[in-house]
Computed example of a mutant assay.
Amino acid sequence: MKIWVAAMLILACVTPATLMAQSGMPLNVEAALDRQVVAPLLDAFERVYPEIDLTYHDKSTLEVDRIVRDERPAPDVVISSAMPWQMARVNEGLAQPLNSGVAQKWPEWAKWRDEVFGFTFEPIVTVYRLNLAKHMMPPTTHATLNAILRSHRELLRGRVTTYSPSGSGIGYTLFQQDARYSPRFWDLVAAMGAADVSLENSTQAMLNGLTDGTYWVGYNLLGSYAMHWARNHPDLIVQIPQDYALVMMRMAFIHRDAPHPAAARVFMNFLLSFEGQKILAGSTPLFSVLPDVTGPYTAQRLRDQVGDSLYPIPINAGLLAFVDPMRRAAFMNRWNREIQILSP
């Protein structure tokens, strides 16, 4: 009897993480998040849980969304910056709740139904080459960007880049938000079209073109990628717009059909933990959400620097409107009309 009681006490102390450490549990994460940027967090997770076999795939937002919907076996954890698409999949029942202490304490404005969580706080920025200042005053607001596109159209022709709303989920989301907050947004789109803007599907493609001199100005780049890249490319200047700055959050959830849900819960809890967020704030430009985390990259520090001109994209059911087919078709029709309106 004493042996049986002792055995039961030992089993009672064994956590799911301990069981995984003993058995070696796989974990598959599908993410629209550059591994180089998030590497400090992934490395820390692998140090804390060395027996969890983490496989991390970095893909585009649209490809991640396709995998979530169509591929089986499903991924364990899904991460994407395309906030409306993430919300749509959760609304369709493709996520499972995370019932943990860190999930329950997570800021209400950065989660939905304890199923999907915004764990970063990333400003959307303009990036320009340093030598642009030799020819014109660099843009600090959406209005001044519009102004230089019109006053220096020939000089900037073919040297401006931004997202393709048809080829990028995050690009489409950001333009939808621009149209919501700026009454002059479509004027800016027309001005970009008149300058023969080059549309790219990723921030990295825009940064590559800015670095090699193909582009002089990039609009609506992800600030996290741009800041990370600019560390080693001092000829690029990252500008948070001073009139208003959109902020997007990477959204993460555990897939409803996750093959390894226990490992997925461990990963999500680490992502949302104080320790995980401290790594984001101190070692990555992804910006921590938690208000009590300190470091160079935190939501509070960004608010202190930019003030009331920060416009975070909220995590709520309103995101679902952006993936409505009729609304998307109407937006794309106007985009195609405006982007060409002043072109030769």
Rank of each mutant, 00 (worst) to 15 (best):
70 D>S: 14
32 A>V: 08
79 I>D: 01
110 A>L: 03
127 V>W: 13
239 Q>C: 09
100 S>P: 11
328 R>G: 02
255 H>Q: 08
166 S>K: 08
279 I>Q: 03
244 Y>L: 15
220 N>W: 03
110 A>H: 12
24 G>E: 06
216 W>T: 05
35 R>C: 00
263 A>E: 14
234 P>N: 11
120 T>W: 14
164 S>G: 07
120 T>H: 10
43 D>N: 01
264 A>C: 11
129 R>Q: 11
106 W>L: 06
273 S>L: 01
279 I>R: 01
29 V>Q: 04
195 A>M: 07
50 P>E: 06
344 P>K: 01
327 R>W: 10
5 V>G: 09
296 P>N: 12
70 D>N: 15
199 L>M: 09
22 Q>E: 12
238 V>S: 03
305 Q>I: 09
90 V>A: 01
307 G>Q: 06
164 S>L: 09
19 L>H: 12
138 P>M: 13
248 M>I: 15
270 F>D: 00
233 H>Y: 13
188 L>K: 04
303 R>G: 09
235 D>Y: 11
110 A>V: 12
98 L>H: 11
279 I>N: 02
126 T>P: 04
335 W>E: 01
28 N>T: 03
166 S>G: 08
261 P>S: 12
151 S>I: 03
332 M>V: 14
17 A>W: 01
194 A>E: 00
15 T>C: 03
122 E>T: 13
269 N>H: 02
49 Y>P: 13
56 Y>D: 11
294 T>P: 12
217 V>Q: 01
20 M>P: 01
109 W>H: 09
207 L>N: 05
330 A>L: 08
91 N>G: 06
321 A>P: 02
25 M>G: 10
13 C>A: 13
190 A>M: 05
104 Q>S: 13
78 V>K: 04
130 L>N: 14
271 L>K: 00
297 Y>A: 15
61 T>W: 04
258 A>E: 11
113 R>M: 00
147 A>S: 13
302 L>I: 14
82 A>D: 03
78 V>N: 01
333 N>I: 11
113 R>S: 02
318 G>I: 07
112 W>S: 06
170 I>P: 00
56 Y>V: 10
274 F>A: 12
4 W>Y: 13
61 T>C: 09
242 Q>A: 15
146 N>C: 02
205 A>R: 04
337 R>I: 14
